[in-house]
Design a protein around this nucleic acid. Structure first.
Lengths: 203, 203
DNA sequence: TGTACATCAGTGAACGCGCGTTCACTGATGTAC
DNA sequence: TGTACATCAGTGAACGCGCGTTCACTGATGTAC
């Protein structure tokens, strides 16, 4: 009995706990300081472990940050799903709200997690096909929404094949430019109006 | 006479030469290694000067990199102007080529100068209103092109007010996503087709 | 033309630092007999 | 149940490093008289 208590007091991180603790702390530090100002030593020390312990879980710094990137990709998709799930009806009005929520949530996540967002779409996570797979969750949200919009006559057939590219690139670009301070937040509405109009076909 | 020769042999950087030499070398190193892997010492040493000399021209590292950013913004606009100037005719065909060149050159510059492009649109150059002013050169190219397209009936009046935002965000986003390896280069044509179609109004 | 002086872009040595990573180690845990 | 052994996640000290920045200095240049 006293044994169990001691274990609870000094857990020593059972089976992967340390790994995810390191991941979470690394993510926290990236969010605060930006990926370039995170050190292995600080991550380790904040988790209460020696610097060398990290190397039992991640081969090097880049791979730790890479894992953070995957984590964030995933959280972003989860966030978008949650935001879009707020409008689940089959009506046109609901479908349109879902479409807009898809865009809003993208930008909102980027703005609320600027440093993490930059990490995800930075050189450290480039060419990481695993993260592309995760990203597909977000991509599929967009495809699904556009399919619904198409079924409701909100997307011209001629435009349909390019709709995802147009929507993704413009929303991603806008997010970036807002983070850079080169566009004001207000453009989100303008852009979404513009996208809707554009997809449906003007006039 | 021998005096002039000596001066020519050991120039010692007359009036701002060192400053621009440092700037150019810093830019070169950013292009090669990325902004995060450039050090004041390396810049100085490659230019043939002691590390401390740099501080007679730039208060600190961030400001040096900030100046590099402005430089690149400017070069990008110059490059775009040159590319667009290849199609100077007043015909519809030429105007359309100019519009497409505007987009192509943006992406091409980004791809040929990935690290510099990332520096420009990264946190180091954020909120730098001077660079925004320079950026206006590129912005004005876009506005002018769209005005021409409008005059030629290639842009629906209803869409016109949002045209710049839609074009810039989507082309910027696409450039970023291509750099990240998340979109293939081929999307450039697709996106420009889509933009043209979209602006003109489908059907 | 020659002298005295101010200026200021350079030097080079040093500061203090935190970093990523390695390595021999220890000590708790789980397993086989 | 008890002993012997393998495993392996942790430690902590050390490695070697390059960094940004400071500071007292020097020596060439330009200016005033």
């Amino acid at each position: 009995m006293s044994l169990t208590v001691e274990r609870a007091e000094k857990p020593g991180y059972h089976h992967g706990d340390l790994q995810s603790a390191l991941l979470i702390e690394a993510k926290r530090l990236v969010a605060i300081n930006g990926a370039d100002h995170v050190s292995m030593r600080e991550v380790a020390s904040n988790v209460g472990v020696s610097p060398s312990a990290v190397y039992h879980h991640f081969p090097d710094k880049d791979s730790l940050l890479g894992e953070v990137g995957k984590l964030v990709f995933d959280e972003m998709a989860t966030f978008q799903e949650a935001e879009m799930a707020k409008f689940s009806g089959k009506s046109l009005a609901q479908a349109r709200k879902r479409f807009r929520a898809c865009g809003y949530s993208y930008v909102e996540f980027a703005r609320n997690n600027a440093n993490l967002f930059r990490l995800c779409f930075g050189p450290l996570c480039v060419g990481d096909h695993e993260s592309e797979k995760n990203d597909n969750r977000a991509w599929k949200l967009l495809v699904t929404t556009l399919d619904e919009m198409t079924a409701l006559g909100q997307v011209q057939p001629k435009i349909r094949p390019m709709a995802e590219i147009l929507a993704w690139t413009s929303i991603h670009g806008m997010s970036m430019l807002i983070l850079d301070g080169l566009l004001p937040v207000e453009v989100v509405d303008v852009l979404l109006d513009s996208l809707e109009l554009t997809l449906k076909g003007v006039k």
